[in-house]
Amino acid sequence: MLRFCFALVLTSLASVALADLSGPLRVIDGDTVAIGETRIRLHGIDAPENGQFCGNRTAPMWPCGSWISGEVRARFDGRSARCVAMDIDKYGRTVARCAVAGEDLGAALVRGGLAFAYTRYSSDYLPQQAEAARRGVGLHGAGVESPADFRKAARRGHDAQHLASAPEGCEIKGNISNRGDAHIYHMPGQAWYGATRINLVKGERWFCSEAEAQDAGWRRAHH
């Protein structure tokens, strides 16, 4: 009897968690929102993590994760949404499709280049991703590492504590300020060279020449 009651409670809780949700959105990051006390992971999309940086040799490093969160917040925070729950993920979040003014939110974000189709779980938004890539909007063409690859690197131990060794012949240290608004490189022999540490997850990197650092949009340290 006790086992039956416990199963009944679990079933009831699951039904509540997977019920349709509606109300004003609170944006948490590029692919996570909340309605009331329910945190919702948007189905089928993946956006850069808040601490993720993007860039490459032709595009200066920039805080794409926080930018994406800000863009999604500016466009959708406080707007009324209706979400249809599909699952509960391992973090206890409700996985759902959400619509704002009748438009699928996941589709809108992928089409606008603010998120990627999360093909590990769904291929629903591949057409919108192809359209965004063709137009070169948002994250496309900005040297963006896959959010999944970024998280995988962090799990392997490339976190804030992990320091990379300089590749052979590439000893110039590219450092990013704590606020993410200054990209400075330090040459061997400069005052702060020895104390500067490189955190690859943050977007910091080694350069092989001053020209390479400057082409990437970094400036030389004053001392």
Rank of each mutant, 00 (worst) to 15 (best):
V110Y: 01
I88K: 12
G106A: 00
C83D: 05
F116E: 08
A85Q: 07
A107R: 00
V100I: 14
L109Y: 01
V110D: 02
A96T: 04
G92Y: 06
R97Y: 15
I88P: 07
A101E: 07
R111C: 03
C98F: 09
A101N: 14
C83R: 03
D89Y: 07
I88E: 06
V95K: 09
M86P: 12
R97A: 13
M86F: 11
R97D: 15
A108I: 00
C98A: 02
R93Q: 07
G106M: 03
V100W: 04
E103H: 15
A107L: 02
R111A: 04
V110S: 00
G102Q: 11
A115R: 03
M86I: 14
G92R: 07
A108P: 02
L114W: 13
G113Y: 00
F116N: 13
A108W: 08
G92K: 02
V110I: 03
C83Q: 06
G112H: 10
A108K: 04
A99V: 14
D87W: 09
D87A: 12
A107N: 02
F116I: 14
R82P: 07
L109D: 02
G113F: 10
F116S: 15
R97H: 13
D87Y: 15
V95G: 09
V95S: 10
L109I: 01
R111E: 09
V95P: 04
C83N: 14
G113V: 07
K90P: 06
L114G: 03
C83T: 08
M86C: 08
V110W: 02
L105A: 00
D104A: 00
R111M: 04
T94C: 13
A108S: 06
T94H: 04
A101F: 13
E103F: 13
C98P: 12
K90Q: 01
C83Y: 07
G92N: 09
D87E: 10
V100R: 14
A115M: 15
G106R: 02
R93P: 07
V100C: 12
V100N: 14
R93Y: 02
E103I: 06
Y91R: 04
R93F: 03
I88S: 13
A115N: 10
G112D: 15
A107H: 01
F116H: 15
A115G: 03
M86G: 09
R97S: 10
D104Y: 12
L105K: 10
C83G: 04
A108R: 00
G102T: 14
A108L: 06
V100E: 12
K90S: 07
A107Y: 01
V95D: 03
R97G: 11
D89C: 00
A85R: 06
I88V: 07
I88N: 03
A107P: 00
V84H: 13
A115D: 06
V84A: 08
K90V: 05
G112F: 14
D87I: 08
A96E: 04
E103R: 13
R93L: 07
L105Q: 01
G92P: 08
Y91N: 01
A107K: 03
